[in-house]
Write a protein that binds this DNA or RNA. Structure first.
Lengths: 249, 249
DNA sequence: CTTGACCCTGACGTTGCGTCAGGCTTTAGC
DNA sequence: GCTAAAGCCTGACGCAACGTCAGGGTCAAG
C-alpha cells in the first residue's frame, strides 16, 4: 500500500523517465541498470538511485556510445571523474563542430535546390559525404580505447580541433585568392601557403599516420567520382598546393 | 580488356562511390540498385546509370528514409518530380532547424559543464530530451504516407516552423518577464499572453490533435521527473499561463 | 598450372530494442 | 470468495542494414 519510501514499478518508472519498459528489461539483462529491488513476486522496483543512473545512461547513449561502452564506463566511473568530464566536454564540442559543418552544407544544398529546378543529386551527394565523414563517430572509439584514454588525459587537447577548423577555412580561402590572382605556384607566396598547409595537416593529424592515410583515402575517393567536384577545397586548390610543394624541393 | 564502354566491377564501383561491396549486394537483393549488367560468370557490372541511382539512394538515406521507402519513391519518381523536390526542400529546412536547436542545447551544456565541477546529468538529460524530440524523425513518415503526400503538396508550408520557433522563444521570454515583475495572472496583460500562447500552440500543431497530444505527453512526462526542471519553459511559466487561461473563462 | 586477387551466393552475427506468447500477481468489483 | 482487468515476468523471435565468415567459382599473371 505504502510505497516503501519511493520505489516505482517498471511501467511507472518507464513513464516517468520516458524510456520503455522493454528497454528497462534490456538494460537489466545487460547489467547496465539493475533495479534497486525486487518485490516478493519478482517485480522490478526502481528507486532514486536508478533515476540518476538512467540519466547517465541516456546521456551517454545520446553522445553516441554503444551500451557496452556505457556499461564499462559507468563501472569504473568513480575512478577518474575528471578525465571523464574532460572527455565529455570534448565530445560535446566536437559534436557541435560537426553539427555546424552540417548546417553549412545544408545551407549550400538549400541554395542550389532553390535556384535549380532539378535536384542536383551529385552536389547533394558531395555534401552528404562531407557531413557523414564528420558524423562518423569512429573518433569516439579512439577516445575510449583504454590506451588512448590515458594518452588523452595526459595531453590537454581542449578546443584545438575547433581552432584548426577555422584556420583551414581561412587558409583555403587564401589559396583560392592566390589562384584567382594568378600567383605562380613556384613563387614565395605560394611556398608560404604550402608550408602552412603542411603545418596544418601535421597539426590536425597530430603526426598520426593513420589519420593522414584515411584523409588521403577520403579525398582520393572523391576525386574518382565521375562528375564535377564540390569538395571542401577544389581540385584547383589541391593542384596548386602540390605544385607549390613540388617546386619547393 | 576494353571495359565495355564504362562498366565497373563491384569492388571498383564500391571504391569509387564509397559504399561497401556488401551494401551493393544488399541493395541488389532488395531491388534497390540492380547492376546494369552481369558478366558471363555472373559478376555484377555497374555503369553510369548506376552512379546516378546510387547517388539518389545515399542522398535519401541520408535524409533518414528507410530503404523500403527509398525504393518505392524511386520507382514512381518520374511521376511527380516537383512534389518530391518540394518535399526535399522542406526536409532539408526542417533538418536544419533541428540542428540549430541542437547547437543551442549543446552550447548550454558546454556552459554548465565549464562552470560546474560535476556533470549535471539531470540538466544534460533535459537537453537531450529536447534534442531527441526534434530528432525523432517520425514527421518524415508523415510526409511520406500516401494521403499526406497529397495534402502536403496542396498546402504551402515553407518555413512556417522556423518562424514559429522564434516566436516561441520570444513569448516564453515575455512570460518570464511578466512573472518576475509580479504580474497578476488575472490581469489583462496575462490574458493577452495566454491568448498568444494558445494561438501559437494552435499554429504549431496545425489543429492536429495528435500532435497536441504528444506534446502534452512530452511535457507531462518531464514534469514527473523527481529532480529540478530544465525544460524549454519552466513550471512557473506553464503555471502562470494556465492560471491566466483559467481566469479568462 | 598454380597462385593471388576478385566474385558469387547463402547464412549467421550485431545493436537496441519491439512484439508476441505463455503464465504468475495484484487489485477492483460483484 | 471469485473473477476479470491490469501489470509483471521470462523467453523467444523480428527488424534494419549491413558485417563477417564459409564454401566455391573466375581470371590474369608468372
Amino acid at each position: 500500500m505504502i510505497k516503501t519510501s519511493n520505489l516505482y514499478q517498471a511501467s511507472e518508472f518507464a513513464r516517468m523517465t520516458g524510456v520503455t519498459v522493454r528497454a528497462l528489461h534490456h538494460y537489466d539483462r545487460l547489467g547496465l541498470l539493475k533495479p534497486s529491488g525486487r518485490s516478493a513476486a519478482g517485480y522490478r522496483l526502481y528507486g532514486e538511485r536508478d533515476f540518476a543512473r538512467l540519466q547517465q545512461i541516456v546521456t551517454l547513449k545520446f553522445l553516441g556510445l554503444p551500451l557496452k561502452q556505457i556499461k564499462s564506463l559507468l563501472e569504473r566511473d568513480a575512478l577518474d571523474l575528471t578525465a571523464t568530464l574532460r572527455m565529455q566536454r570534448e565530445m560535446l564540442a566536437e559534436r557541435r563542430r560537426q553539427i555546424e559543418a552540417a548546417i553549412e552544407a545544408i545551407k549550400r544544398a538549400e541554395r542550389q535546390m532553390a535556384s535549380e529546378s532539378e535536384p542536383d543529386w551529385e552536389a547533394l551527394a558531395k555534401i552528404i559525404e562531407v557531413i557523414e565523414m564528420q558524423n562518423n563517430w569512429d573518433w569516439v572509439k579512439k577516445y575510449y580505447t583504454e590506451e588512448q584514454l590515458a594518452e588523452l588525459s595526459a595531453r590537454g587537447t581542449p578546443e584545438v580541433l575547433e581552432r584548426g577548423q577555422r584556420e583551414w577555412a581561412a587558409l583555403i580561402k587564401e589559396v583560392e585568392q592566390a589562384i584567382s590572382e594568378g600567383v605562380d605556384p613556384a613563387s614565395e607566396r605560394a611556398q608560404a601557403l604550402a608550408a602552412r598547409w603542411k603545418a596544418l595537416i601535421e597539426d590536425f593529424t597530430g603526426g598520426n599516420p593513420e589519420i593522414l592515410a584515411s584523409l588521403k583515402r577520403l579525398y582520393a575517393d572523391q576525386a574518382n567520382w565521375p562528375a564535377g567536384a564540390q569538395r571542401p577545397y577544389t581540385d584547383e586548390v589541391s593542384a596548386f598546393i602540390s605544385k607549390a610543394a613540388a617546386s619547393d624541393k
